[in-house]
Design a protein around this nucleic acid. Structure first.
Lengths: 201, 201, 201, 201
DNA sequence: CATGAATGAGCGTTCATTCAT
DNA sequence: CATGAATGAACGCTCATTCAT
C-alpha cells in the first residue's frame, strides 16, 4: 500500500527536523514542505503534531530495540555482544537524535506522554535495558561479572557510562573503541595494583 | 536592591514550570501568575521567553558548579570528595530538573542555544567536568586511578554512569549508596578473580 | 436511471444532517458517509455544498407545495381544505425541519441565496402563499371571509398564526385541533358578545 | 470601565455581520475589522466564535424583553399596550435581525445552544410570551377576550400572526397599521354577518 | 517602575474540492 | 462513473510582546 510509504516519508522528514530544532520551533508547514506532501496529508496519518512527534521518537527506538535484541541472541562471547550493541546504539544516536530520549527517559518530555503511548515508550526503554540485562544475567552465571550489583543496575550503568564516554568520541565508534570502553566498564577506573595486574596476563 | 529579589522570584516560578512542562506548554502568563508579578515585569528582567528559559537552565547549573568546586577544594580523600559531589548532583537533579541538561548537553536543545548564551551554558558543563577532572588528575598523581584513560574521559564516564545508576535510586542517595556506586566505577563490573580479591584486603 | 436514485439518496442523508446541525457543522464527509457514497460522487450531482444545502431546502418545500396545491383543488368547503393544508404543513415541519424556511423566508439565510436559486426558492414560498390565497379568494367570493384585508395578507397571517399556535402542540395536530385553530383564526381572539354569539347557532 | 464599552463595540459589529451573513460566512477577522479592535481582543471577551454569536443573539432579545415588559406595565387599555408592543417588536426586527430567533425558537440553531445559555435564551422567549400572556390574562378578566383558548396560546398566536402579517409591511409599522392588524386578530378573518356587525357599532 | 489590556503575527487544524486510479 | 487520498486555502485561536496608564 502506498500509504505506508507516505507515512514513512513524513516520519523521516519530521525526524530530521525534530532532531535539529525544538518541538515548538518545528512547524507543520516545515514538516510538510520537507516531506514534499500537502499540509492536510499529514493529518491523514497523525492526529496532531504531538502524535507525529511521538511517532518519530518511538519509531527510532523501536528499530534500535530490534537490532539490539538480535545482537543479544547471537552466540558470541558476552563482551563481543556488548560491543556490538554499543556500536549500534552509537550509530542510532547519530542517525536519529531522538533515540537519545531512550537513554534518559527521565526527561520531562517523556514523563508527560499520555496514556498508552507513554507506556509504549517506556516499554522501549525497558526493552533495551532488559535485553542488556539478559546478557549480564548470563555473564553472571558464567562468573564473568560481579554478583553484588543487580544486573539491571549494571545495564543502566553501562548505558549511562557509555553516554558520557562516547560524548568525546562523536566521530566514529568501532570495535576497537568499544573494547577500550568495555575495559573501563569491566575493570573499573581504579588503578591496577601489581598483583591484580598479574591476574590478567 | 529589590529587583534582585524580583528576578529570583521569577526564575524560581519559571523553574518549577519548565520542569514539569515543555517550553511551548509554559506560557508567560503561567510564569507571571506563578511568580505573582505583572506580565510586563518579566520583560524588564528578561529579553524574551528564550532568555528566561536559558536563565533558568543556567542558574541551576551555576549553583551546582559552585557547590561542586567547593567540594573539590576540600582536603578529603578523592573518593570522599567524589561521593560528596555525586550527592550534590543527585539533589540538584531532584530539585531542579533542568540541571539534567548539564549532564547531557549534547541535547538538541542545548545545541541550538544562540551565541554567547550557548557558550556560557557549555561553560557550565565544562566547569563541572573539569572540576571532576581535577580530582582525577590528583588521583592519577597519587596512583589511585588508571592512567590509560584521559582524566576528562573518566569524568564524563563517571557522570554518565552515575546518571544511569541513579536512575533506579530515585528516592535518596546518601554516602552509603555513593560508596557502592563508586566501588562499581573504580573496580569495574568485572568479576574479581581470587588473587585480585586478595589485593584489596 | 440509477442517478436519480443516488441523488435522492444524497439529498435524504443531507436533509437529516442539516436538520440537526448547522450548515458549517455538517461536513461533506458526514454527508457522503451517511449517504453511503464516495466523496467525489456528491460533486457529480451538486456543484458545491451550498447547492446541496439549497436543494435540500427546496426539495422539501417542493413536495409540500405539491401536496398543498392538490388539497386546494379538492372540492371541499374552504374550512376543510385549510385544515387539510395545515395538517400537511405540520407534518412536513416535523419531518423536514427545513420546510420551516418556507414559513419565514425573511430569514437572513434565504435572503442571501444567489441568483436563480434564490428566486426559485422564493417561488416556493409564493407558491404556498398563493395556493392558500386562492382559497381565500374563493371564500371571499362566497362571503365567508372579510373583504377589508387582502387575501394574500390573510394567507400570510394564517401561516404565521399557525406557526405560533402549533408551537405549543408539538406532538400531533389533527382535524380536531385544526378546527379549533381555524375557529380562532376566523372568529378572532376577541370575546363574543351575547348577540354576536347568537348569530352562529 | 472601558472594557464594557469595548465589549459593546464588538457585539455591535458582530450583530451587523451576523444579520447579513451566515454564521460560517462571518470570519473573526471580519468582526475584529468591523469592530476596530485587534483579533486577540475579541477573545478577551468571548471564549470563542460560538459564544460571541450567542451573545449577539441574546443581547438583542434582552433589550426587547425589557421594553416589552415596560409596555405591559403601562396603565393603558390592553389594545393600546399590544399595539405598542408590536411596534417595538417590529422595530427590533428591523434593527436586529437576530431578534427573529425569538419568534421562532424552534430553529435548529437555537435547539442546539448548550446548557445554561440555551435555557437563558429560552427564558427570553418565555419572557416575551409571558409578558403578553399577562395582558391577555387581564383582558380575559375584563371580558374582552375569548376564554376558550389559553392566554399563552393567544400570545403565541398573536406573535405568529404578526410575523406573517408584517411580512408584507416591511417598511414601517405604526399605530394605525397596528390597529388594523389587531382588528384582524381580535375579530378574526371570518366575514361579519349582518347581526354580528350590528353588535359593534 | 509595575501593570495588564490590547495587539497581530503566526500556528495548528479543518474540510471543500480535485483528480488519478 | 465512482472513489477516496491528496491538497492547500482559509479559518479560529494562541500567546509573546508592547505600551498607555
Amino acid at each position: 500500500m502506498a500509504s505506508q510509504a507516505k507515512e514513512k516519508q513524513i516520519v523521516r522528514a519530521a525526524e530530521e527536523l525534530f532532531n535539529s530544532r525544538r518541538f515548538h520551533e518545528v512547524t507543520m508547514e516545515d514538516v510538510c514542505r520537507a516531506a514534499g506532501v500537502g499540509k492536510g496529508t499529514i493529518y491523514r496519518y497523525f492526529k496532531d503534531k504531538e502524535e507525529l512527534f511521538l511517532r518519530v521518537a518511538t519509531s527510532g527506538s523501536e528499530e534500535l530495540c530490534d537490532v539490539v535484541r538480535r545482537k543479544c541472541a547471537e552466540g558470541l562471547p558476552f563482551e563481543e555482544r556488548l560491543v556490538g550493541i554499543l556500536i549500534e546504539i552509537h550509530q542510532a544516536k547519530r542517525r536519529r537524535g531522538l533515540v537519545r530520549l531512550l537513554m534518559r527517559s527521565d526527561d520531562a518530555r517523556v514523563g508527560r506522554l499520555k496514556g498508552a503511548l507513554h507506556s509504549h515508550f517506556e516499554d522501549r526503554r525497558s526493552a533495551l535495558i532488559s535485553a542488556i540485562t539478559q546478557i549480564f544475567d548470563e555473564a553472571i552465571r558464567e562468573g564473568k561479572v560481579r554478583t553484588d550489583v543487580p544486573p539491571e543496575l549494571l545495564a543502566g550503568s553501562l548505558l549511562g557510562m557509555f553516554h558520557g564516554y562516547s560524548w568525546h568520541a562523536e566521530t566514529q565508534f568501532q570495535r576497537e573503541e568499544g573494547l577500550q570502553f568495555l575495559d573501563l566498564f569491566l575493570r573499573g577506573a581504579g588503578a591496577r595494583t601489581a598483583s591484580a595486574q598479574e591476574v590478567r596476563p
